[in-house]
Amino acid sequence: MKILVVDDSAIARKFLIKSLPNVEGVEFEIKECINGLEAVNIYPDYKPDIVFLDLTMPVMDGVEALAKIKELDPDSVVYVLTADIQKSTQEKIMALDAKKFLKKPPSKGIIGDAVLEFVKTMNIG
């Protein structure tokens, strides 16, 4: 299973990756990007199953990146993981059809549940 982690902070990417669950029979392949533009550029070739996307980033922020990724692939699964947890931000993100809006800091519980939920839908589908 391919995961794309997009965050300008190296430590934030590390914390997220450490929070990924162990799922029997599932191997994670992980790629990291440091801004939205990198993510949009890499998306068509890499074709990740899940994107974890930060919002506040230089060059291209997460909101713009989310819109572009959805343009490239309307079925993409994007989990937004952010410190900007204001209601208005959340509404904007959900309107852009993100799969989920997750609050930083990442924890095994939050990230685990999100990934497991996705794995389940994959198995059913």
Binding site: S9, I11, A12, F15, T56, T82, A83, D84, I85, Q86, K103, K104, P105
Partner: peptide
């Protein structure tokens, strides 16, 4: 920096 970011967001 990341912690401050999260703290101020909350």
């Amino acid at each position: 920096q990341e912690l401050m970011n999260i703290a101020f967001g909350q």
